[in-house]
Design a protein around this nucleic acid. Structure first.
Lengths: 205, 205
DNA sequence: CTGATTCTAGAGCGATCGTTCAAGAACGTG
DNA sequence: CACGTTCTTGAACGATCGCTCTAGAATCAG
């Protein structure tokens, strides 16, 4: 896509992806506004000038963090489950079980960055909160689309309500993220996932 | 308890409860750190000196707001349902339905203050986040206690898992709060509540 | 080497943060 | 009236916020 472009001038002394990972952990743990640029530069090992020339401002750095998070394993498992599982029920079962394992994983901050990183924002950062809210509501729409397809293919009975089921599973996922941040264990969240599946129409399985 | 105490000196020009309500709305909407003292004084109609002499500092004002919220109708319905309903199933059904109606009520900020007001905090305000987290986990413990009683009284079968059920309903409630802040309607949340009840053991009702 | 270019280092910008303080106003008491 | 007390007012404190700027270091082209 992009031309190779001859390299000129002083080369960067830091790895962009590594720095982005450090920023991700901070935003994931404390959220957008509660993470200061000073904390970011310290964790990323760079000075403010380098941060602003490499990533723009704090807001665009955050958006780049969110995009990278969405492509990482822990951020992409929702889309993977919906796309790869042959049945809708299998997709949501896998999705819930993987959330139960990933959200409390101690190798990274608890819960889901998209769900919890911009809950408390000032009015001048309302755009950041809206950015994440739109991502969450897009996930809700993907849930509904998958369930609608399942109904059209006969996996779900005509009496089922795809939109209601999608909203229910979205609420469960978001609640599991919150519970993980409150200290829930993988065992607890796995049991929550199994109980949540009891809402599946017809009581199959 | 307290002596009548003769009133001396200049009387306050503002109503304490009214000012507390104004502060509650701000903290509820934006959270603890994203609400500045300047916004608080403007909304409460008082100057910084009055705020600090009447409520201590920002942190103690927030705690007083949380306590008042817990005694208000929208903050106390959980405890009321658990205490007043004769059966555990009736208690959780009422609790979920009332949450579905209260969380998206446009007469106040969406969702639950205890759940969402201190999600994103800096390290120096970790105490505030812990304060709300303890309240949430106390609610979880109350869920479990009510379900354990139900099991001992035969309402729940011996095969049921009170702790797992409590964690599940806690996750659903917290997810419903998040969904309400993301724009969910009372109708959506009511359907979520009904679906959530499908996890009740034995498939009763 | 010189020159152009790109990055780093670190001081410092204006704005806002939570909080405090001094001066004065409004009350009950003597 | 004066006095003691309590509250209000508005300025201002030091700290931190996101961000910018300048000087210099490191590279490539010629």
């Amino acid at each position: 896509m992009t031309a190779p472009e001859v390299k000129r001038g002083r080369p960067p002394t830091f790895d962009r992806a590594t720095a982005l990972e450090a920023a991700t952990r901070l935003f994931w743990e404390h959220g957008y506004e509660a993470t200061s640029v000073g904390e970011l530069t310290r964790a990323m090992g760079i000075r403010p000038g380098s941060l602003y020339s490499a990533f723009g401002d704090k807001k665009s750095l955050f958006k780049e963090v969110v995009q990278a998070y969405g492509r990482s394993p822990v951020g992409a498992f929702v889309g993977a489950a919906l796309a790869e599982e042959p049945t809708a029920r299998g997709a949501f079962r896998r999705l819930l079980r993987e959330a139960a394992a990933a959200y409390p994983d101690p190798s990274h901050p608890a819960g889901c960055l998209t769900i919890s990183a911009a809950t408390n924002v000032t009015v001048q950062d309302a755009e950041v909160a809206a950015f994440l809210r739109d991502l969450r509501n897009a996930n809700l729409a993907a849930f509904e689309a998958r369930l609608l397809t399942a109904q059209q293919q006969g996996e779900l009975p005509p009496t089922a309500n795809p939109r209601a089921l999608a909203a229910y599973f979205a609420a469960v996922i978001q609640g599991m993220s919150q519970r993980a941040r409150d200290g829930a264990t993988p065992a607890e969240l796995t049991r929550t996932a199994e109980l949540a599946l009891a809402a599946w129409p017809q009581g199959q399985g």
